[in-house]
Structures are given as structure tokens and as C-alpha cells.
């Protein structure tokens, strides 16, 4: 089955937590995770999805600059309004700065709550 949610985060514990929470909310979601931003970009560029999945991307990856990843996604129109930025930062500038990218649908401050995941689940089912 084709994945319908991609999470890019180099914090593996955070990935595990997210995985388990998603399982609780909706076990039928097909989740694909990346700890490397570069690998994730390669995957997104090479694979043509029938239904482009939603993407949660951590803002501070070690291997790729946060803005570079958004620039890459700008060139893939199928991901416009499909990307949620996740970040543990409380810097109030970040959500504002990321708004100029067409791909960005929202900004989620960590920790991700069940409520947030439920609304994402809603979007996935409407996709």
C-alpha cells in the first residue's frame, strides 16, 4: 500500500512516539519515516504517488538546511499545502517565515498532541 503520511525527523525517539500515537488514532494509516532530509527529498522526487501523502518535516534536520527542503518541495506542485513543519522551537519568527512557501500548510510545535494528529488524520481521510 502506498504511504499516506511521511514524517521526516532525525530524532528517532520522537519518531517512535509519533508512530505509536498514530497507531492508537488510526492503525490503517500507512506511515513512512525518514531520519535523513536528503533521503526524503530523493524519495519524494523519484516516486510518483497516486495520492501525494501529507508530510511532517522537522525544522532542524542535521543533514539539510530547513529552507532548502522547503525550496525543493516548492518545485513539486503536488505537495503544495501538504507540508506541516514540526519544531520544538518556541521562536515566534519561524511560523511567520515559513508562510511564504506554497507547500506549507501549517506549523506544529512539539510535542505533537493527539488532537493535532486527529485533525491530520481527518485531512488524510479526505485526501
Amino acid at each position: 500500500m502506498e504511504e499516506n503520511l511521511i514524517v521526516i525527523d532525525d530524532d528517532e525517539i520522537a519518531l517512535k512516539i509519533l508512530q505509536r500515537m498514530i497507531n492508537i488514532i488510526n492503525p490503517s494509516i500507512s506511515l513512512m519515516t525518514f531520519v535523513s532530509g536528503l533521503e526524503a527529498i530523493r524519495h519524494l522526487k523519484s516516486k510518483k504517488h497516486k495520492k501525494p501523502p501529507f508530510i511532517l518535516v522537522d525544522f532542524h534536520l542535521k543533514d539539510v538546511n530547513e529552507w532548502e527542503i522547503l525550496e525543493e518541495l516548492e518545485s513539486l506542485p503536488e505537495y503544495h499545502s501538504k507540508v506541516f513543519i514540526i519544531s520544538s522551537s518556541v521562536n515566534s519568527e519561524l511560523p511567520f517565515q515559513s508562510r511564504r512557501f506554497k507547500s506549507v500548510a501549517g506549523f506544529i510545535q512539539k510535542p505533537i498532541t493527539f488532537e493535532t494528529l486527529k485533525s491530520i488524520n481527518q485531512k488524510i481521510s479526505e485526501n
Binding site: 530524532d11 520522537a14 512516539i17 505509536r20 500515537m21 492508537i24 532542524h60 520544538s88 518556541v90 505533537i112
Partner: peptide
């Protein structure tokens, strides 16, 4: 301030995430 805001808060956010999980 940046370290406070992001680096210190990263493991804290993780702990809070774990607690969300435990509460379920």
C-alpha cells in the same frame, strides 16, 4: 536564547510527547 528555545526544548518536547502517550 536560540539554544534555550530549540536545543533544550527538543528533549523536553520528547518527554512531553511520551507523557501524551502514557496518558492514552
Amino acid at each position: 536564547a536560540w539554544i534555550q528555545s530549540h536545543v533544550v526544548r527538543a528533549p523536553l518536547a520528547r518527554m512531553m510527547g511520551l507523557m501524551n502517550l502514557l496518558e492514552s
